[in-house]
């Protein structure tokens, strides 16, 4: 048994039901409530009923294979990653693969399942801020921030890179900039506090 499809489409602007009017949704010229020009493109899944809830079957016969996590439930399929028997409730479908909850969690944590990866840190952007923000905000910190940038580059060189920009090239360029910046800023500090003028003073 399945639950009928939810045929209401709330207007993203005013939350009025776009499907509530007499006009077909696909031919709707505007929202009937807020009168904003709206185009709704429907796909077949809009009319599909909700899938039936999965229920794990209880063990009927002694000696039947049971779920690793629920010993009283009948085994439905083995986990594709660890091979443990799973009941219908524990069988998690990830793009056609059958995984147990533990393998799914481990895979998500260790970024082994790209389908589950939701976020990556852009270390190249952090490094660029460390390198260029002090030039505008507080240039006296340059020796420190360029050193920190070099440490971050070394530490995160093998971190998962960006999917849309070449992080390794950026980090390589920033490493060169950080070395130059560190050298230049240390030289500048030396010029200010222990440069040739202090030597001249000492000689006099």
């Amino acid at each position: 048994m399945s639950v009928p499809a939810n045929r209401s489409v709330p207007c993203p602007r005013c939350a009025a039901d776009l499907a509530g009017g007499p006009v077909e949704l696909s031919a709707l010229p505007q929202c009937p409530a807020c009168e904003v020009e709206t185009r709704v493109v429907l796909f077949p899944a809009f009319d599909w009923p909700f899938a039936e809830a999965v229920r794990a079957e209880l063990v009927v016969l002694t000696g039947e294979a049971t779920c690793f996590y629920h010993p009283q439930k009948r085994a439905h399929v083995p986990c594709d990653a660890c091979g443990r028997f799973l009941c219908a409730l524990c069988d998690l479908d990830v793009n056609g693969a059958h995984l147990c909850p533990q393998c799914l969690e481990t895979g998500a944590k260790k970024s082994r399942l790209p389908e589950l990866e939701r976020e990556r840190t852009r270390w190249d952007r952090i490094v660029s801020t460390l390198l260029f923000a002090p030039l505008v905000l507080c240039w006296v910190l340059l020796p420190l921030t360029s050193l920190v940038a070099l440490v971050v580059i070394g530490w995160k060189w093998k971190a998962p890179p960006s999917l849309v920009s070449n992080t390794r090239i950026s980090l390589g360029v920033y490493a060169a900039v950080a070395v130059l910046q560190f050298g230049g800023s240390v030289f500048m500090w030396w010029l200010i506090f222990a440069g040739p003028h202090t030597l001249t003073t000492t000689v006099q």
């Binding site: 489409v9 207007c11 993203p12 602007r13 776009l18 949704l25 929202c31 904003v36 020009e37 709206t38 185009r39 709704v40 493109v41 429907l42 796909f43 899944a45 809009f46 389908e115 990866e117 939701r118 976020e119 990556r120 840190t121 852009r122 952007r125 952090i126 801020t129 960006s162 999917l163 849309v164």
Partner: peptide, 20 residues
């Protein structure tokens, strides 16, 4: 400082709503 990924599977999409 982060890159976020969102996946919309074709089999799950019910509608695209474009509003001026």
């Amino acid at each position: 400082y982060s890159e976020r990924y969102r996946r919309f599977y074709f089999r799950d999409l019910q509608a695209v709503i474009v509003q001026q």
